[in-house]
Each structure stands twice: as structure tokens, then as C-alpha cells.
């Protein structure tokens, strides 16, 4: 059984990135990270290892994201126009900002699915976190990847 300290060191960067992908707001992501680890700290003594620790933690974090109703109000609901007139930017920070912007325009479950995929979780584990079948997750990831690629190409990021 891992200690809270080990779990926090191992998973906090991943959880933060997933929350940031969902909210596109660093401060809100930090609040959700804290909320997640409060639940982990409270639940750790009774955690019965029916699922992997990582699945359990990602479930808590993504459920916290889904519950953050006020987050939805901050999210842009319109699709990004494909003929953006912004200059092409190649810095890592700008690419990251643009990736978050694109993810923020996806619907809530797609945001979670692509964030977990980008974190490197196996598709079976993503399925277990979200509550869909692995086949369904595979199809969704393919579609999301296509959408992101199109947006990045339209923005001049991919050749």
C-alpha cells in the first residue's frame, strides 16, 4: 500500500495537467487538485484496492472536474473558427496555450478522455475512469485527435 506522500509525488503533476486541460485555468486547476487530494487523503485508509490506485485517483479528479459547475461558465462554448488570423507561433508555451484552447472547446467528456490519453493511461483504464467501453473510447480518441489535428493544421502548427 502506497503512502499519501508517495501518491501525491507520483500523481499530482498528472492530476494537475488533467484538471488544467479541463478548466484551462491554472488557479482553478490547483483548487481541483487540492480538492482531489483531500478526497484521496480521506479515502486512503478505506481504499480496498478493488481498482488500481491510479484509476481511483483519476476517477476522483475527473468527477471533481465534472462537478465544478461554475467552470462551465468560463469555458468558451463556440467552436474556434478555422480561418484564424492570428500569427503563427512556434514557442512551446504558445503551442501549449493553443492546445488547451482547443481542448476547452471540446465537450466535457471528450476533454477528460483526451487529457487521460495524453497522460498516457491505457485505453482500458480510461474506459474504467469514464464508464464507457474500451471500443467506444478508442473511437472517441480517434475523433478527438482528428479534431485537434485539424485545428492545429488550420493554425499552421502541423505541416
Amino acid at each position: 500500500m502506497q503512502t499519501f506522500d508517495e501518491i501525491y509525488r507520483r500523481y499530482s503533476p498528472q492530476i494537475y495537467r488533467v484538471c488544467l486541460g479541463y478548466t484551462n485555468d491554472p488557479e482553478h486547476a490547483k483548487d481541483l487538485l487540492q480538492d482531489t487530494f483531500i478526497a484521496v487523503w480521506q479515502g486512503l485508509p478505506s481504499f480496498r484496492q478493488q481498482s488500481q490506485v491510479s484509476t481511483w485517483i483519476f476517477r476522483i479528479a475527473t468527477n471533481r472536474c465534472l462537478r465544478a459547475m461554475e467552470v462551465a461558465k468560463r469555458m468558451p462554448s463556440e467552436e474556434l473558427p478555422f480561418n484564424l488570423a492570428e500569427p503563427r507561433v512556434d514557442s512551446k508555451e504558445e503551442k501549449l496555450k493553443f492546445l488547451y484552447q482547443c481542448i476547452a472547446e471540446l465537450n466535457e467528456t471528450d476533454r477528460i478522455i483526451i487529457s487521460l490519453e495524453l497522460e498516457g493511461l491505457a485505453q482500458a483504464e480510461i474506459a474504467s475512469v469514464v464508464g464507457l467501453s474500451s471500443g467506444n473510447i478508442r473511437v472517441k480518441i480517434h475523433r478527438i485527435k482528428e479534431k485537434l489535428t485539424q485545428k492545429f493544421k488550420a493554425h499552421g502548427q502541423f505541416r
Binding site: S12, K92, E117, L118
Partner: peptide, 17 residues
């Protein structure tokens, strides 16, 4: 492209956590 996205994704700064 997925690998490119992963590389961008992992560039997020987590040192301030």
C-alpha cells in the same frame, strides 16, 4: 500527431505545485 500533442501536453509547468 498524438505524439506531438503528448510532447506539448507534458510541457505544462508543474513545478509551482
Amino acid at each position: 500527431n498524438l505524439d506531438d500533442f503528448k510532447a506539448i501536453w507534458h510541457a505544462a509547468d508543474t513545478k509551482t505545485l
